[in-house]
Simulated assay, not measured.
Amino acid sequence: VVELDHDSAYQLLVATILSAQSTDRRINMVTPALFERFPDARSLAAADPDELEEMIRSTGFFRMKTKHLLGMARAVTAHHDGQIPRTMAELVALPGVARKTANVVLGSFFGIPSGIVVDTHMQRLSRRLGLTAETDPQKIERDLMAQVPRSRWIGFSQQVIWHGRRVCHARKPACETCPLAPLCPSAELGAGAEA
Rank of each mutant, 00 (worst) to 15 (best):
V2W: 02
E3G: 15
L4T: 09
H6Y: 09
S8P: 01
A9L: 01
Q11N: 10
L12P: 09
L13D: 02
T16K: 02
S19T: 08
S19V: 02
Q21K: 12
Q21W: 05
S22A: 15
S22V: 03
T23Y: 01
D24E: 13
R25I: 15
R25S: 12
R26A: 10
R26G: 01
I27R: 11
N28D: 08
V30P: 10
P32N: 04
A33F: 01
L34K: 11
F38T: 09
P39K: 02
D40Y: 01
A41D: 10
A41P: 08
S43M: 14
L44H: 04
L44S: 03
A45F: 13
A45D: 04
A47S: 14
D48A: 07
P49H: 00
E51K: 01
L52V: 10
M55P: 04
I56N: 02
I56R: 02
I56S: 02
R57G: 05
R57C: 04
R57V: 11
G60V: 08
G60C: 06
F61S: 06
F62T: 08
R63L: 13
M64N: 15
K65A: 06
K65C: 04
K67M: 06
H68E: 08
M72F: 05
M72Q: 03
R74D: 07
A75V: 03
V76N: 00
T77P: 00
T77R: 08
A78M: 07
H79Y: 11
H80M: 07
D81S: 15
D81I: 11
D81P: 11
Q83T: 13
Q83P: 00
I84D: 09
E90H: 06
E90D: 15
E90V: 11
L91C: 10
L91P: 15
V92Q: 04
L94D: 15
L94F: 06
P95V: 05
P95F: 01
V97A: 04
A98Y: 00
R99D: 12
R99V: 13
K100F: 12
K100R: 07
A102M: 07
V104D: 06
V104R: 07
V105D: 03
V105M: 05
F110W: 11
I112M: 08
G115W: 02
G115V: 01
I116M: 09
I116N: 01
I116Y: 04
T120V: 13
H121Y: 12
R127H: 10
R128H: 12
L129A: 06
G130E: 07
A133L: 12
E134C: 09
E134M: 11
Q138V: 12
Q138F: 05
